[in-house]
Amino acid sequence: MVETLRLGVAVMGNVASVSLYAAPITTFRRVIRKKSTEEFSCIPYIIGLLNCLIFTWYGLPVVSDKWENFPLVTVNGVGIVLELFYVLIYFWYASSKGKAKVAMIALPLLLVFCIIVTVSAFAFHDNEHRKLLVGSIGLCVSVAMYGSPLVAMKKVIQTKSVEFMPLPLSLCTFLACSLWLTYGVLIHDIFVGGPSVVGIPLSILQLALHCKYRKRSVVEESNKEDMEKGNLEMGNVEKNVTIHKNGNW
């Protein structure tokens, strides 16, 4: 019964986490369409990539005992592909300053991951110490990942607009955190459930900000569209007047 419950929560956690990793697709459609990263931050995606790399390594038999943490490998394997995809798109459409920022953050973090893999694989000779090293670092990175939207939340409060903090991302974060906290408790693994202790309150705060500023953002977007429509109509009127004056009516 307990094993079935663990499996069920793990499957739901996988689905929620894949949804979390896939949520920014709408954001990057906008980036590609506008050929600009606008005010979006690259930090959540780079830290997300590092988090997926570390927990994929944590779930492999090299660190864990056989395949006891196989659900971590499947979901974070998908996460690696998606997060890398986002970082590369961000880098491609970022300004020169933005490209430098991505490189300055991503390259050192990838170097850190390589060091973690090397040390855990060769400096320790038992799963217990490997899990302790990789899990502790993964715990810190996960907390940083869940904390990275604080940059976006600060901007939301300053601008009173949720334009650059997508709602699907906040919803999926809350759901994924809740499920992985449950799974971590069931398997008695603090490194799996621990990050969600930070992630859940932060995701609730994001949802609260959406509730507070969403209506204002919708109204402003509607006003912006009306203004653009009005300017277009005014331009057509001026064009017709000019044609009339030139005798080409």
Results as ranks from 00 to 15, higher is better:
residue 7 L to T: 11
residue 117 V to T: 05
residue 206 Q to A: 12
residue 103 A to Y: 01
residue 149 P to M: 10
residue 194 G to T: 12
residue 92 W to P: 04
residue 145 M to S: 14
residue 192 V to T: 11
residue 200 I to Q: 00
residue 28 F to C: 07
residue 55 F to Y: 15
residue 150 L to H: 04
residue 74 T to L: 08
residue 229 K to D: 10
residue 58 Y to L: 14
residue 189 D to W: 07
residue 220 E to T: 09
residue 179 L to Y: 03
residue 14 N to V: 04
residue 31 V to H: 01
residue 11 V to Y: 06
residue 141 V to H: 06
residue 118 T to Q: 02
residue 33 R to H: 04
residue 132 L to A: 08
residue 20 L to V: 06
residue 159 T to I: 05
residue 47 I to G: 05
residue 69 N to Q: 08
residue 218 V to A: 06
residue 184 G to Y: 14
residue 11 V to A: 08
residue 96 S to Q: 15
residue 150 L to S: 10
residue 51 N to H: 09
residue 192 V to Y: 07
residue 108 P to Q: 12
residue 71 P to H: 04
residue 118 T to C: 12
residue 165 M to R: 11
residue 51 N to V: 01
residue 197 V to Q: 10
residue 246 N to H: 13
residue 33 R to P: 00
residue 116 I to K: 01
residue 143 V to I: 15
residue 15 V to E: 01
residue 42 C to S: 11
residue 149 P to G: 09
residue 178 S to G: 05
residue 24 P to S: 04
residue 8 G to Q: 04
residue 215 K to L: 02
residue 39 E to V: 07
residue 139 L to M: 12
residue 162 V to E: 08
residue 79 G to A: 04
residue 139 L to H: 08
residue 185 V to P: 01
residue 241 V to H: 03
residue 63 V to T: 00
residue 164 F to Y: 15
residue 190 I to G: 10
residue 67 W to Q: 09
residue 108 P to F: 12
residue 125 H to G: 14
residue 98 G to F: 13
residue 172 C to G: 06
residue 178 S to Y: 00
residue 101 K to Q: 11
residue 137 I to L: 07
residue 217 S to P: 02
residue 42 C to L: 02
residue 220 E to K: 07
residue 58 Y to M: 13
residue 163 E to T: 10
residue 167 L to P: 09
residue 130 R to A: 13
residue 203 S to T: 03
residue 151 V to P: 05
residue 86 Y to S: 04
residue 244 H to N: 10
residue 14 N to Y: 03
residue 224 K to Y: 01
residue 104 M to G: 13
residue 221 E to T: 09
residue 33 R to N: 09
residue 89 I to E: 14
residue 74 T to D: 03
residue 127 N to R: 02
residue 14 N to H: 06
residue 37 T to N: 03
residue 54 I to A: 09
residue 120 S to Y: 02
residue 45 Y to L: 01
residue 139 L to C: 12
residue 21 Y to K: 00
residue 72 L to F: 04
residue 17 S to G: 15
residue 98 G to N: 10
residue 231 N to Y: 11
residue 214 R to G: 15
residue 249 W to N: 14
residue 170 S to R: 07
residue 98 G to D: 09
residue 13 G to C: 08
residue 49 L to H: 12
residue 126 D to S: 14
residue 147 G to V: 09
residue 168 P to T: 13
residue 81 V to K: 04
residue 234 M to G: 08
residue 165 M to A: 13
residue 97 K to A: 15
residue 69 N to I: 07
residue 105 I to Q: 08
residue 149 P to H: 11
residue 205 L to S: 13
residue 37 T to E: 00
residue 4 T to P: 00
residue 224 K to R: 14
residue 121 A to D: 14
residue 116 I to V: 15
residue 187 I to C: 00
residue 124 F to L: 14
residue 111 L to R: 05
residue 237 V to H: 05
residue 62 V to P: 00
residue 168 P to I: 02
residue 226 D to Q: 10
residue 82 L to R: 10
residue 104 M to S: 11
residue 84 L to H: 00
residue 214 R to D: 11
residue 175 L to N: 11
residue 218 V to L: 10
residue 248 N to V: 02
residue 107 L to P: 03
residue 79 G to Q: 01
residue 109 L to A: 09
residue 97 K to V: 08
residue 87 V to K: 04
residue 157 I to D: 08
residue 228 E to W: 03
residue 102 V to L: 02
residue 147 G to K: 03
residue 149 P to F: 13
residue 171 L to P: 05
residue 127 N to G: 13
residue 48 G to P: 06
residue 33 R to A: 14
residue 15 V to H: 00
residue 10 A to V: 01
residue 223 N to Q: 10
residue 70 F to R: 03
residue 145 M to P: 11
